[in-house]
Design a protein around this nucleic acid. Structure first.
Lengths: 410, 410
DNA sequence: CTTACTCGTTATGATATTATAATAAGATAC
DNA sequence: GTATCTTATTATAATATCATAACGAGTAAG
């Protein structure tokens, strides 16, 4: 009837061990015992069981200065797939049981790609990578853009793809795959990757601000991703500011798309120059286009870039004052699109962050690059399969029992 | 040498039981076993030990429909003192071991009170309440305004009292009291009270926004207060918005003092009316004064009130979009200072909060009234004395050992 | 008004975890 | 180069925790 506390507690401990090894890559029994506050004798027993279950392996004995050989996850045990997509491209990662990258692939989308095509392209990408797997594929994580409902595995709305409302991502993937599937907000996936093995490694509280076509925020509190109700936390793009032009959304002020659109609008009210004309003649103006005209000496555009930096600085300062995090990890191309923007951003950030908070918090670039979201989605598979919180585990146990029940009945 | 894991784990469990009883007021052994995921047999043993230690008592047997009499904390075991102060007043609460209020007292400060006088008044308040205690005083919690450094027990800066920088609150209290002392941000204390027995009871994630002379934010995540680095999280007053008048701080837009000041400035640029003149003649204009003139038919002031509501609405909407909390608990007089303000606030909140987030989050008034901060400070004493996290416990154990060491040496 | 059930509690034997001491081997001090 | 210290691991005995069954008192069904 009730789930067995003893089994659950044991599973929590074993999963905790596996997760710790996943995080640290390699460690000895004693390290694990100390870090997880488990008796060394017990740790020896647990590890032995995990080794005979084929989950852990002992590595090179020479790597240990003392005692037995350090432990690793058995890379052959299985692999994880992560897919990350947004308006312009999709990226996929296939990693082994220890999280090491086996395969990676990126595909670009043409402009105004249809909803159906996006789905087909990411499905194809996932299949291609899954086919290359030479070991059991344990889970597929999908890092989706826009407003994501993780529960139902759908994208509720994404502004930058046409007709992208109520998109049943998980359902579509379930038709093509047998594997465990989950959908996560792409910024949270990115933040998770940075937490595990990127700039956030070792930090208990930090924020991950991604500014590219859109903007998003990943919140790590107490070493865990914070999702809020409905898993909707971090919708930083919808922050509203009462500016000279009336209320404006953060996404319109600092995202690449928002900035380009508002800048083009501004140009139309100013006198024309050669550089600006060139911009207006283009079919699709990018942030880089504006920067190159600005750096060629266009004062109006340069001022715009400074404004962009200022807005980014205010945004990060506000986040710092609210969360007092250890750091704010920056991702996406916008914060580093140009020196002008970055410097102004830093300056404004320092200006408006409380001095006391400024003593600890700082801006840092993400260290995992463009595949961070896909990596995070893949790595998340590990904790999903080996969860350490009671509720998820009890849930898992119940589902297993139900499955048993069904098979015995049939 | 090392702290004993067995002792620590046992202490965590026992403290967890005490905290659970503190939260729920009264419960049976079996409830505790289920809620804390501890075996019922063990729970029986633990409870027996806690009863013989004089911490728990059995209540009225008739209150239980089945089984043994429900458990309570032994109210005679001790009491807790909480002091909350801000620019205009100080409030104190003395509560028993179960958290029930024994005494309460409020004192008002005159305008421009000196730093020294503030300290003396709150010390006197604390002494008065402490003197009325008929059982051991276990801790004194001080809920302090402004930027608080909990670690050193000092107020770093508070705008609304003159010369209130680097105020060593804990040191001053330590000279007068022998009891355990701690200093906490007053909004966090308030949020803690609402979490335990107020509007936040039962919520795992919520925000507590206090808008009075200044503004502050308490953040509850995963059922715990979030403090950030340096315990500086929640400095919502320093959020900056790029408005028509240039960058402005949230505190200048929505706090009572900020609003009154900016409104007076505005009046000076407008044509004078009888009502406005009356305002300017006053020595000290309050929010209530402005409201009464506005409601007497002053359109300019009415518009100001609407602006105030709008700003409050935007602020809460931004917080909702960032945190996706279960609710935002409102405290302080400003959100309810007038119907105009509150209605406009709700309207704007609904306008700018993402629909998906709006399905769960709502604005709710705090239910503990003006003494909430003092209550929170008093109640916090309980978890400080009976902590449930490893680190604090190990810390406690070390301190005890050191004390022993010292006494044996002497 | 009886019977079967649920719920809170406790007793008992089985199992898991810890404290402690023992062992082995690298590191450090002299 | 030897003695001492530190560290990672294990064996053993003491202790804590759990699963299970048993009990008694309310509750619901007939």
């Amino acid at each position: 009837m009730h789930p067995r506390p003893r089994e659950t507690k044991l599973a929590i401990k074993k999963n905790g061990i596996l997760n710790e090894v996943f995080r640290s890559g390699s460690c000895q029994r004693f390290d694990l015992a100390r870090r997880l506050n488990i008796n060394a004798t017990m740790m020896g027993n647990y590890v032995e069981e995990l080794i005979s279950a084929g989950l852990l392996v002992e590595g090179d004995p020479a790597a240990a200065s003392r005692g037995r050989a350090p432990l690793h996850l058995n890379p052959q045990r299985g692999c994880f797939l992560g897919i990350d997509f947004e308006a312009l491209r999709a990226r996929g990662i296939l990693c082994d049981f220890a999280g090491e990258v086996l395969e990676r692939k990126e595909v670009s989308f043409r402009n105004n790609i249809s909803r159906e095509n996006v789905l087909n392209r990411i499905l194809k990408l996932a299949k291609e990578l899954a086919d290359r797997a030479d070991r059991p594929l344990l889970s597929i994580g999908i890092a989706a853009p826009g407003q994501v409902d993780c529960e139902s595995g759908r994208v509720l709305h994404y502004r930058l793809l046409s007709d992208f409302d109520q998109v049943p991502l998980r359902d579509r993937f379930e038709q093509a795959f047998e594997t465990a599937l989950f959908v996560e907000d792409n910024i949270r996936a990115l933040a998770y990757a940075e937490l595990l093995r990127g700039s956030g490694k070792g930090s208990r509280n930090f924020l991950c601000l991604a500014v590219r076509s859109g903007i998003g925020l990943g919140i790590v509190i107490d070493g865990k991703l914070y999702s809020g109700s409905n898993s909707m936390a971090g919708e930083v793009g919808y922050l509203v500011f009462n500016t000279t032009q009336g209320p404006q959304l953060a996404t319109d002020l600092v995202s690449a798309k928002g900035f380009v659109d508002s800048t083009l609008k501004l140009i139309n009210t100013q006198k024309m120059t050669t550089g600006r004309k060139q911009l207006l003649d283009k079919e699709e103006v990018t942030l880089a286009d504006i920067i190159s005209v600005a750096e060629a000496g266009d004062d109006v555009l340069l001022e715009q870039l400074k404004q962009l930096g200022k807005h980014l600085g205010m945004l990060t300062a506000n986040l710092a004052n609210l969360f007092a995090p250890e750091k704010i990890v920056l991702a996406g191309e916008v914060p580093n699109c140009s020196l002008v923007v970055r410097q102004q951003m830093e300056r404004t950030f320092r200006q408006y962050t409380l001095p006391q908070i400024l003593t600890t918090v700082y801006l840092e670039d993400g260290s995992l690059g463009g595949f961070a979201g896909a990596l995070g989605a893949a790595w998340m598979g590990f904790t999903r399969i080996f969860p350490v919180d009671e509720e998820t585990l009890i849930q898992q146990a119940k589902e297993k029992q139900q499955a048993k029940h069904l098979t015995t009945k049939v």
